[in-house]
Structure formats: C-alpha cells, structure tokens
Design a protein around this nucleic acid. Structure first.
Lengths: 189, 189
DNA sequence: TGCGCTTTTTGCCAAATGGCAAGTGCAAGC
DNA sequence: GCTTGCACTTGCCATTTGGCAAAAAGCGCA
C-alpha cells in the first residue's frame, strides 16, 4: 500500500485521512499468469494499480495475428479509458504475463473520490496525461528505428522486464518476428 | 471562429457569454510555410488552434537526422504540454508545412479561463486526453505494419493531407526513406 | 527419468528496405 | 527560351527482415 501512496503523491498532496479514504476503496486482486484483467468486448469499470508482476495489452489484427501493444510494469496504473470515461467496450485484452498482485478500484469509487478529495480530478488528469505522454514518447521513435535499435531502447526503458517476458510477446511488441528477435539477441551477445 | 466554437463544444457545453469570453482571449496568427510555431529549446507558453494549413512536429535524432514525428491538421489544437504544464523547454519543433492561420492563447489567459468558466479544466482535460489517445491509436499499429500498409493507413487517417505534404516529410513520418515511399506510391498506382 | 508440449534457435531462401548516385520533372527567375 | 535549384523518381546493389520448416532447448508432469 505504501508503494501506491508514493505513486499518488507524485501527482499532488494528500493528507493521511485522504490516503486512508483512498485505501479503503481498494480491493486486492491476484491474477495468475495468463489470466485476463480485461477482455476485449467488455466494458472496463475499474482501475488497477499493479503492485507486482507484468501485464500486457494485446489485440488481434485484421489478419488475425495477436499483437502485443504495450507492457505495464509494477507501480503503474492500468485501466481502459474508453470504458472508464465513455462506457465503451475495450477492443483490447489486458493479460497477466506473470503472476500479478493489484489494487483495484471500482469505477464508482474512483469517480466518487473527486467529490470527497479536493484536487482529486486534477490528480487523475495528471496521471492520465503523464501516462499517455510517456507511452507516446516511447513508441514514437520506434517507427523510425531499425529492429536492433528498438530492442536496445526497450532494454533501456524497461531494464527489469526483458527477462520476464516471453520472447514472442516482446517480438510482437517490437514489430518483428520471434525469429528475428532471436537473431538480434544472438548478434548483440 | 465558429469552427473553433464547434471544436470546443465537443468537450462540454458553453453559453454565448462564455464563448465570447474565450474568443476575446484569442489572437490571430498567420504563419508562412516553413515558419516555426515553436522552436526546440524554447518554452512554449501558448496554445494554438489551427484554422487552416498543416503543421508538423519534428526533431533531430542522435544521428542528426531530421525526423517528422507528427502532423497537425485543421481544427486541432497544438501546444507543448511540457512547456504549458511544467515550464520545460520543448525538444521538438512545430513548423508550418503550408501557410497557416491559427488562433492563439497566451498560457496565462488559457489557465485563467479555469477560474472564470465552470468546467473549463475538465474540458481541457478531455481535449488533452482525447488528443493523446488518438495519436497513440494511430502510431501504435505502425510498429507492426509494413511500409505499404502504413502508407495506406495514413491515406485513410488523413485523406486530405497526403497531397499537401512533401514526400520527404511523409516518408520520415512513416519511418522509411523518400526513395522507398516513392516506390510504394508507384506500386500502388 | 522419460514423454509430450511449447518456446526458442537456426538454416535457407525470398521479399522488403536502405544507401547512393544519376536521371527526370517542374517552377522561379533572368 | 534558358538556367538553376529543388523535389521526386529510378536503377543498382547491399543489408535487413520475413516465411517456413527443422532442430534444439526448456518445462511440466506422470
């Protein structure tokens, strides 16, 4: 829980009462490897904070290929804004890559905090936009880089992740085939 | 100005007085082709709404190559959130690809609207997150697609843009060389 | 331990893309 | 009409990456 408080306090100040209120709205959730936190076609009505483990976001392309679009690692929030803000079904899956522990808010509680905690929606705004900006900043350069550079940047961005993720997921995230990633790894050694 | 009002009203309701107040804070700005709306190293303290023309966001890679990261077309906002929200210098340029007409807010006025118009910061939040989510949704698939598919998706996403943008900028945006884009165009014909 | 399954590595060849340089086309200015 | 500059196209060849299949390695489980 302390880790979650530390995360929140990046985005504004909260007194102990407020932190306690926030904590009282969370439910612990354990996901086994390969279990889904969110399935495509469903409306996400919750917000998760990942205490331990790795999640991935994936979808199926028109050609039917499964594509891993993003990884979520410890101490980050995960939700589907389409569901949370607009009540729309998610086109993507959120799946546990390893066993995971999360703290989960129901949408209702998450939204209600805005009425109880002054500045809460401001903080949520900052979390959302920081999160989106960081994703964008990581993905944008990938378009103009070759596969080896993309892999090395991934290692820089997520040093603690590479050895916990199956090669096939990582290859898909990098936009290359598993064979190519395997060869790239060999060349780097 | 009506186009700008229509844009704003996507994100919440505003009465005529409020619209008039907002309008009174804008300054028209004309940019000639190739002029900069924002230069790397500077702190952006304004928000622009593009009435006419095309802008691009670009930067220089470590290798010194100029890379076009994004295009902004009519009826969209442009700013640098690092400057606006955190007072940080922009690492990127915002340059006019064609002659442009904009409406511009000074940061001070933009922020002040939050005190005068109930729900303004909420609206700004929605604009920001919608904008970021859309960019992300367009860029993400590009990583896993081949160059031809990326080009065709670009045509779908920005049908009115392709013929107004120099081939070299578009190639850079797509992460390929101008020669390759030229060949792709030939193959599609 | 040994079996069956999945994941990763490797080899072989084809296709896509890059690098570079020369050629073409078009528009502005003289 | 000619020249000049710039953007785009094309040709040639090297490199990267993909597709496919087989081999090897890892892993759970009886």
């Amino acid at each position: 829980m302390d880790e979650f408080f530390a995360y929140l306090l990046q985005f504004g100040s909260l007194n102990p009462q407020q932190l306690a209120l926030i904590a009282s709205k969370t439910t612990p959730l354990v996901l086994s490897k390969d279990a889904y936190f969110l399935e495509a076609g469903h409306v996400s009505r919750r917000v998760g904070f990942l205490l331990e483990g790795v999640l991935r976001i994936c979808y199926y392309s028109k050609q039917g290929d499964e594509i891993t679009r993003n990884f979520i690692d410890e101490m980050h929030l995960t939700t589907d804004l389409r569901g949370l803000e607009y009540g729309l079904a998610s086109p993507e899956y959120v799946q546990a890559v390893t066993d995971c522990r999360l703290l989960v808010f129901a949408k209702h509680d998450w939204d209600e905090l805005a009425h109880t905690i002054v500045g809460w929606s401001e903080m949520v705004h900052k979390m959302t936009s920081k999160h989106l900006r960081e994703k964008l900043a990581r993905i944008s350069p990938m378009v103009s880089q070759d596969a080896t550079t993309r892999y090395q940047e991934f290692l820089d961005n997520y040093p603690q992740l590479a050895n916990r993720i199956p090669l096939s997921y990582l290859a898909s995230f990098l936009g290359i085939t598993p064979s190519s990633l395997s060869r790239i790894r060999k060349n780097i050694r």
